[in-house]
């Protein structure tokens, strides 16, 4: 279970998170929605400990993010980054098996490669891409490799940061379905950040909306469709008029 209590984060005068209280139960897929610059990515990075919050407490299965064995803590996570964040100089299989080639989860090289190829197959890529460099792949294939890397060590918690950004609608649907399938199969706890309502409908058990650095609304996917909250309805309908200010 992931628990955030009173989490605040500012960058200079920019108050990005203003007292976030949030609980994500084990095995739940939570999708966080909200406009650009509302602090969604910062929230994820605070949970991972990449950015220390100014105030508040974050615990994962009871362990405070700020204390304890960092490697053991991070070994519980897999993350798909917005731009995939693959390492350009390493072939695809070494990107996927990165965690398995070093550190506490280290495996023999041959075994790590086999696992990488198995994970590539899991996300719909053949073994023929294993020795190619990330730069030789299309955006959609890179996303799949990023997904394979996120699940390579079978982590119990997976984060997805804008998993469909930059993809065409068909490919976005494929990636959304794949994420749902993987999260259900692995019984993983998942947090996804997205603007894409297709992702919300495909992936979410629960939805949370961030606005102005605060948690504006939380509920199930079904509750989201029925809510009268004007911020949520404006966002899910993509309306230019409503309480959410837009630049015109």
């Amino acid at each position: 279970m992931i628990e955030l209590t009173g989490v605040e984060k500012s960058f200079g005068d920019n108050h990005v998170l203003r007292g976030i209280d949030l609980t994500v139960e084990r095995g739940t897929s939570l999708v966080v929605i909200g406009g650009s610059g509302t602090g969604k990515s910062v929230l994820l990075k605070c949970i991972l400990g990449l950015i220390p919050p100014d105030r508040g407490v974050i615990t994962v299965d009871g362990q405070d993010v700020a204390t304890g064995d960092r490697d053991a803590f991070l070994a519980r996570f897999g993350m798909l980054f917005q731009g995939s964040a693959l390492f350009d100089s390493l072939p695809v299989w070494q990107n996927v098996a990165f965690r398995l080639l070093r550190g506490a989860l280290r495996r023999p090289r041959g075994e790590a490669r086999e696992i990488a190829i198995e994970k590539l197959r899991r996300v719909g890529l053949g073994a023929e891409v294993a020795d190619r460099l990330p730069g030789e792949l299309s955006g959609g294939m890179q996303k799949r490799v990023g997904l394979a890397r996120a699940i390579a060590a079978d982590p119990p918690i997976i984060f997805f940061d804008e998993p469909t950004a930059g993809l065409d609608p068909i490919l976005a649907r494929v990636i959304n379905d794949l994420i749902r399938e993987i999260v259900v199969d692995m019984k993983a706890t998942a947090i996804t950040i997205t603007h894409d309502m297709g992702s919300v409908r495909a992936i979410a058990d629960r939805v949370a909306m961030l606005h102005g650095g605060r948690l504006r609304w939380t509920g199930t996917r079904a509750e989201m469709d029925d809510t009268a909250d004007p911020y949520v309805t404006q966002f899910i309908h993509g309306s230019a008029t409503g309480p959410i200010e837009t630049l015109r």
Partner: peptide, 12 residues
């Protein structure tokens, strides 16, 4: 391109 963040999340 967040590769440094990716390294950290991969315990490196």
């Amino acid at each position: 391109t967040e590769q440094i963040d990716a390294l950290v999340t991969l315990s490196t």
